[in-house]
Design a protein around this nucleic acid. Sequence first.
DNA 1: AAGGCGTACAACCGCAAACAA
DNA 2: ATTGTTTGCGGTTGTACGCCT
Length: 498
Amino acid sequence: MAYDGSLASKNSGATTSKSGGSSRHTMKKGPWTAAEDAILMEYVKKHGEGNWNAVQRNSGLMRCGKSCRLRWANHLRPNLKKGAFSAEEESLIVELHAKLGNKWARMASQLPGRTDNEIKNYWNTRLKRRQRAGLPIYPLDINPQNHHQQETVPQTNLSSSSLVSLLSSGQNPSYTTPLSIFDMFNSSPGQNQITPSYPSDPSQHFKIVQDKNGLALSLSSINSPFSSSSVSLAFNNQGISSSGPSLPMPSSLQFNCLSFGTDSMPVSCPSLEKNGSISGSDMGIPSIQSLFPTPPTSSGSDYAIATSNIAHDRDENMEGNSRGNRGLLEDLIDESQALKRVDKAKEISLDEDNNSQGKFLWDYKLMEDGGGNGFEEPGLSFDQHNIIMDQQYEDSSPAHSSIRDKTTKSKSDEDNNPVDDDLSSLLANFPSAIPMPEWNDENSNIAKGQASNLTRGDAVDENQPESSHSQVAKTLETTENNWTIGASRWKNLPGFTR
DNA sequence: AAGGCGTACAACCGCAAACAA
DNA sequence: ATTGTTTGCGGTTGTACGCCT
């Protein structure tokens, strides 16, 4: 939907003289008018982009530089694709998000004609929708990468405080999440053993750290896409403490109960681990995630949970069939239907006599179809389960074994995998056919304002059951729409310079 | 018809990196 | 090396619209 200057807007015509703006003038805020657009376009045509604060000074446009830049990048620059995302673009976004996390600009650089803002909006909407439907965020065939820690993460709004109140209530609360965020624990359809859909072992998602002060369980973190929203629970002399703003729960792993023999638990939100993997401030969790309904704090109401098996079912059903223009709603319908086929959950409880202090019980309910994946043994200690987890993942993954080992290893991995690693991972996963964004190609030139020839519908043959990557890549291979305006090259477009 | 809700979209804000003086 | 400015990114908010009850 396009704002139009005539629309009533409470911000329309609003002005600001907010400090930080380079201009001493009062800046206009709110929707842009056609006249303003024309001024900005004319200015950029003459002077090229960049130096946005000068736009206001030189053109008389009562907009701050920031606003001008945004308007240009998101709406006025040539080659912008308008309209809904194609199925290929959608799947590419999902894949990119799995790899990059909330790196909208970088994602946009892989989607010609699309802006980071568009992608962000799309993703957030999709995420919210799928959360509401209790569907996994990523299909099974998407392997979220571990090294992007700022993901938009499925969240429950079981906040630290509510968790602790839950814990200290003396009840035997039951909590499950409708989200499938720990799909790596699901077995493949028809199989009775874990087949990680993530390229990691579970010890990379759980970190159980025991030290002289007690025991800490950290969910997510190392090799999961949820690490940025991971939560640690520490059981120590002070009781339980948690970190992280809210508790991401595995869908396939119902996380049922915590009962403690200790006194009421003080709340604190420290980083429980020295590696600092848990921090509430850098979670990067969109507020929409808190929209998720608060799970019951009393036992007995389990949420239906979508598992990756469902997603897998869906994906399998789709196999050989073009997704065509099937969109999110269709996906949701598919997966919701598949949801009904989920076998009943299997329960696993673990209890652990930890140190001298808290006695706690974790009750895992593992959602899987076929059962028997090794998490069924009730009453195992954490260490025992660790062993199970390790063994099973050793079977199916080169990634190795000891959770405690992983705890330390993971940190060094993180240290050694900064952004460059993200990039190399992305490059490694992308077909070489994907060209650089057209505005970076100095040699090609197209007419100013020429529309991209990658448009919805004709971008790819949607009847071809081909991977989105290759489809998009092919399309991109044929895209030659570089362009310039005057002497200005479009080198500053979003997503390319960072 | 009216209200609620979800969705799509536009735009703003704060922060931090990059850059220039 | 320091400081100020510019730019870019990601998160958040606000608004219109469509659908449903």
